[in-house]
């Protein structure tokens, strides 16, 4: 069993190392061995922009490039390829400079009197890539030869040692990501919304109506619980406590997660300058927990209101 596990692990290790080795070899061939040469800078910029042009949600794969490439462009622009820091310092600096590059690009966009939109961000990153590559070319021309830094080799021994720590880091990350989804948590609070619906939700003053007109008030009930709720919606003219009239109640059942529209209508006797109508939500299976909705009507023909 142990020998099987050992050989399985070493086979996986060989496979991963082979993949990385091929990828590194390919990138060295295509990009002239260095990502900080002008061609490499343009390639990095194009990769970021191409990934950012993928349709959503595939565009998410641009994230590592978005957190690394702008900083890489800035660092190479400032230091030049032969002096740019490498290793952990170089990686950290590129990430932090990426984070710092966006605000300065945004301020540039602002000074150019443009909005900070997706298009302007893409153009700004492209401009940064072109400037960085142009400065790189100028440096090469002035020096008369390709300027490169020390090789960033990933030797096998280093990779072999990296497998366990990096693997543990990935595992810990997965444990937290999965754990937060599967670990039991306190159930979310349940509630029912009751509100004026449609254009009635926009009422901002007493509603003028002609005498004898019977308004039909729209309401909405949104059930944010896990059970079916049964309600009776009823309107009281003059308010619930001092009602002069009570409209025909409407009964309704609302499934969990659903929103029901309920319309109540009726006459308003003795319509004056300000007649209150309260709409009450009666819970047919439990105590009433909602305050009534309240709005006002006035006689349209009266000029003193």
């Amino acid at each position: 069993m142990t020998s099987f596990t050992t050989s399985f692990r070493s086979a996986i290790g060989r496979f991963v190392r082979g993949l990385v080795s091929r990828a590194t070899g390919w990138s060295r061939q295509v990009l002239g061995n260095r990502f900080d040469r002008p061609a490499g800078l343009i390639a990095a910029t194009v990769v970021l922009l191409a990934l950012a042009e993928l349709p959503n949600p595939l565009r998410v794969v641009a994230l590592p490039a978005a957190l690394f490439v702008p900083g890489h462009l800035v660092v190479t622009l400032i230091f030049g390829p032969s002096r740019a820091p490498v290793g952990l310092t170089g990686a950290g600096l590129r990430v932090i400079m990426s984070m710092a590059a966006y605000p300065l690009l945004a301020l540039g966009i602002f000074i150019a009197d443009r909005f900070y939109t997706r298009t302007s961000v893409l153009i700004a990153v492209l401009a940064l890539g072109v400037i960085s590559a142009f400065v790189g070319l100028t440096r090469e021309y002035r020096h008369g030869e390709a300027v490169t830094g020390p090789p960033v080799g990933i030797d096998r021994a280093w990779m072999s040692r990296a497998m366990m720590p990096v693997g543990s880091l990935v595992c810990a990350f997965l444990i937290v990501a999965v754990g937060v989804e599967v670990a039991p948590r306190r159930p979310i609070d349940e509630f029912v919304q009751f509100n004026l619906g449609g254009r009635w939700a926009l009422v901002d003053a007493a509603v003028p109506i002609a005498a004898g007109f019977e308004p039909a008030i729209e309401t909405e009930i949104s059930n944010r619980t896990t059970e079916v709720r049964r309600y009776e919606v009823v309107a009281y003219v003059g308010g619930r406590d001092d009602a002069v009239d009570r409209w025909e109640p409407v009964r309704i059942e609302v499934a969990p997660g659903e929103t029901a529209e309920v319309r109540v209508e009726g006459p308003i006797p003795d319509l004056g300058c300000r007649t209150k109508v309260e709409i009450v939500l009666n819970d047919l299976d439990g105590p009433d927990e909602h305050d009534p909705l309240a709005l006002f009507f006035r006689a349209a023909e009266r000029s003193d209101c």
């Binding site: 950012a52 949600p57 565009r59 998410v60 994230l63 966006y102 605000p103 945004a106 997706r118």
Partner: peptide, 16 residues
């Protein structure tokens, strides 16, 4: 607004 610019920039590029 620098932090907001950074976050909005990443959002524009990645759609996250």
């Amino acid at each position: 607004p620098a932090m907001h610019m950074f976050a909005a920039g990443v959002r524009h590029l990645t759609g996250i």
